[in-house]
Simulated scan of single mutants.
Amino acid sequence: MGLLILLIVGGIIGWLASLVMRTDAQQGILLNVVVGIVGSLIAGFLVSPLLGVAPITSGAITVPTLLISFVGAVILLAIVNLVRRGAVR
């Protein structure tokens, strides 16, 4: 059940991050889910301990964990755009 929730939340976070970074037309739903989950994992392991917030992978879905996951997904998309095009957008 936790994996299903992680996939759904990751998909929504990835979709919102792709809307912010204007890459939604280039990605499908699968890539949105991957970006959301990977961005959440990166932010959860790097940023959550600094702020004292539980990562989203611990099962705690709160506003701070969702915001940290969203920021991680946006940063991941910015890095991908920088590598792919040479510009963040």
Rank of each mutant, 00 (worst) to 15 (best):
G28F: 09
L4M: 09
L16H: 12
L41P: 00
V71H: 01
V53G: 12
N81A: 14
G36V: 04
L76K: 03
L51S: 11
L76I: 05
R22L: 03
G86M: 10
T23Y: 10
M21C: 11
G11W: 15
L16T: 13
T62G: 15
V74G: 10
V20H: 05
G44S: 11
Q27H: 12
A78V: 06
R85I: 09
R84V: 07
G59V: 14
S40D: 02
A87V: 15
L4C: 04
G72K: 00
A60C: 09
I12N: 00
V20D: 01
T23K: 13
A25P: 07
R89E: 10
M21Y: 08
A43E: 01
V88P: 12
I75R: 01
Q26I: 09
R84S: 11
G2S: 10
G86V: 09
L46N: 02
M1G: 10
R84Y: 06
W15V: 02
L19C: 05
S58I: 05
G59T: 10
V47M: 05
P49R: 02
V63Q: 14
I61W: 09
G14K: 14
S40M: 02
I37K: 04
L50D: 00
G14F: 15
V74R: 10
T62D: 15
A25K: 14
L66I: 09
F70M: 00
N32R: 11
S69K: 06
L30I: 06
P55L: 04
L77K: 03
R89A: 07
G86K: 05
G39M: 08
L82F: 14
V9R: 08
L3F: 12
A87F: 15
G44C: 04
L66F: 05
P64R: 06
P55W: 08
S48T: 11
A43W: 02
L50Q: 08
G14A: 14
I37H: 07
L7H: 06
G86F: 13
G11Q: 12
V53N: 13
A17I: 01
L46R: 01
I12A: 06
I29W: 15
I37R: 12
G36D: 02
L82W: 11
N32L: 08
A43D: 02
L51T: 11
L66W: 06
L31W: 08
A73Y: 04
L51V: 14
Q26V: 10
L77D: 07
F70C: 01
I12H: 03
F70E: 05
G36T: 06
V74C: 14
S58V: 04
I12T: 02
S58C: 01
I12K: 00
Q27T: 07
L67I: 15
R89L: 05
R89Q: 06
P64N: 03
M1I: 07
T57Y: 04
I56E: 07
V80E: 09
V83M: 13
W15A: 05
T57I: 13
A17D: 06
S69P: 03
G11S: 15
G39N: 12
